[in-house]
Design a protein around this nucleic acid. Structure first.
Lengths: 345, 345
DNA sequence: TATTTACTTGTAATCGATTACATTTATTTT
DNA sequence: AAAATAAATGTAATCGATTACAAGTAAATA
């Protein structure tokens, strides 16, 4: 192992003290121009690299932030992470990504490990609705370490969040389906203890009411956001005498499952049943039967979250600066819901 | 900010020294049973958490490993990362994920930042074929910090790697297409300075030769691995009088682009043209026209990489233990290449 | 009882960088 | 030239945990 160069090595070589070297490297105005240049040149020559650990220990800042997401293998979360990274990069921060795989215990473990790793903040999308009752979570709050929610948030005093207007998204999607002539719109939801799923549902319901359509609880199904459950739920929905003529899904994956099931039953999309998904995953666009979906602008979401984090970390106390940023969703209309156009032909 | 509990706080409360506390917490056999239990109980009661930064500074180990990948929003890399995490988790290591977005400079920057962050090792899939000539890379090697390649590797003395047998994969895919009756098989490659793409190409070529088919250089195209380039390349390939009857793509994304182009030209898949992709991304399976693809077992790849890292980090010197682990790829045969079956109907 | 041996615990240095405070040197001001 | 001020550098403590070495205490042996 080649000896690691420290400020002491530089000091020895220049016959000065480590304190002077440290100050020179940090552009402390107390140091003379001459010394500063000399130290910096010598440091470069000796290939000196600052030991971040030592610096972190001294300053109490690790310049690491933890990001907790259910999983990274979706375009949605990957894009959020990219947004966070892009924004934090120039400020010297690193991102430690943790995945919960939707496991509630993993979430708690992740928070603990991140805290032990002395992260300067945690940006997360919750996987566990009951987390605020948890000890780890309280520890996090008590430490006054900036905490921030994106997408899947909880309403906790003093905790900022960046989300998309899920109510509006649900409303827009449903309104669009109604305009396409659909009268019995089913909704594939997910655990509505999560705000995002509750709000999408409420937007859906409100759009029905505003358009004078009846709200039928039996058309709302709570499932996990994956292909398989989307299939099964669709099968059930179409197993009764009065099936829906549209499906608004809270997830692109279950929307895909729905489409697979509809096709296997020979039900024509969008003529006999329209489908709208959620999140605008790339595949919704590239499928032969492209899928209408809601864009949540994940890149922007990540950037905004990072910006709020930077504000909070610089302000010190985040309690006083609770921010709730809400982005406006956009509906990308594609083949799976263009009913009128398809019926013309 | 609530005061952080340190071993000094515990020591003060118990009227002993920090050294004793440290030893007790680390189960040092020199400490009496009584003291050890007392210290541990007090630590729990006071909600003491070890400061990883201090420990890292002292021990020279950060218990962080850096993972550098082109990007995380593909199932392939996300699964590798999951494999790495699963394996390292129980050993107390954390993963810092860095993305290069296929930018060569980002790769160098990532290496530098990870080194500055004092990571204990770097596991990476290269984005830059000429990286070994780079200063950062040499610094990494000189420091004797475990370095490991997965998937996209370089042959560097003393550096272990975990890859899939890309030659075999290319061979299998091509052999399959030949068995399905294809005679003019095109190959969508990528920069063949990367071993993976060169090997896939060589496997493809060898299969042609072994089956007595002519190798036609004009049927091999080097493109980036995305939908758009797959489309364009396919358009070109079918713009001549003697078009191919199959496309073996080094990427699922360009395979998808190829399929889109073929469909838009009204060319029947697989009857008139078969398509085989690479990486077994989830969408290859769930498309209505499911895509034949190569499984590289990314989860296993990640696990193996992590295991080798653990070995190297425990051995200290990794120079002597260069390992080259090569996994066997598996071809998942799906509709896009089942030509014989389709022709029967 | 005196002495050796075995346990326990304490003292102080260390990892590398930062910084309040002290000291020295150079420059102005009177 | 003496005194006051400014500028540059040094000294030493600090962040929190670990550990070689020293030292103390209790148990075992002579």
């Amino acid at each position: 192992m080649s000896h690691k160069i420290t400020i002491y090595d530089i000091a020895k070589k220049l016959n000065i003290t480590a304190a002077t070297v440290s100050r020179a490297l940090n552009n402390n105005p107390k140091i003379s121009e001459k010394t500063r240049i000399l130290v910096n040149e010598t440091a470069t020559k000796m290939n000196y690299k600052q030991n971040k650990l030592a610096q972190a220990l001294k300053s109490g800042k690790s310049y690491n932030v933890g990001v907790i997401v259910p999983r990274i293998d979706s375009n949605f979360f990957a894009s959020i992470i990219r947004g966070i990274e892009e924004e934090l990069y120039s400020h010297g921060y690193h991102v430690i990504i943790c995945q919960t795989y939707n496991n509630e215990n993993m979430e708690i473990e992740n928070i603990n490990t991140l805290l032990n790793a002395q992260v300067d903040g945690i940006l997360m999308s919750i996987s566990n609705v009951s987390i605020e009752k948890n000890a780890s979570f309280n520890r996090l709050l008590a430490k006054n370490i900036p905490l921030l929610f994106f997408d899947r948030k909880k309403n906790i005093e003093g905790v900022s969040s960046v989300t998309v207007n899920d109510f509006e998204a649900g409303y827009k999607a449903t309104q669009h389906l109604i305009e396409e002539g659909c009268k019995r719109i089913a909704h594939l939801s997910n655990d509505r203890l999560f705000e995002i799923f509750k709000d999408r549902f409420l937007g859906y319901k409100q759009a029905l009411i505003d358009n004078g359509l009846p709200f039928d609880e039996s058309l709302v199904v709570e499932i996990k956001s994956n292909i398989e459950e989307g299939r099964k739920a669709t099968k059930k929905l179409f197993g009764v005498k009065n099936p829906p003529d549209a499906i608004f899904s809270s997830s692109d994956w279950s929307a895909l499952g729905a489409i697979q099931e509809l096709k296997s039953q020979g039900i024509k999309i969008p003529e006999e049943c329209c489908v709208v998904g959620f999140s605008n995953e790339p595949f919704t666009e590239f499928m032969e039967l492209s899928i209408t979906s809601i864009d949540q602008f994940p890149l922007e979401m990540g950037k905004q979250a990072a910006k709020v984090f930077l504000e909070e970390v610089n302000n010190g106390a985040h309690i006083s600066t609770e921010k709730k940023i809400v982005l406006t969703p956009k509906l990308h209309i594609r083949k799976s819901s263009l009913r009128r156009e398809a019926l013309k032909k």
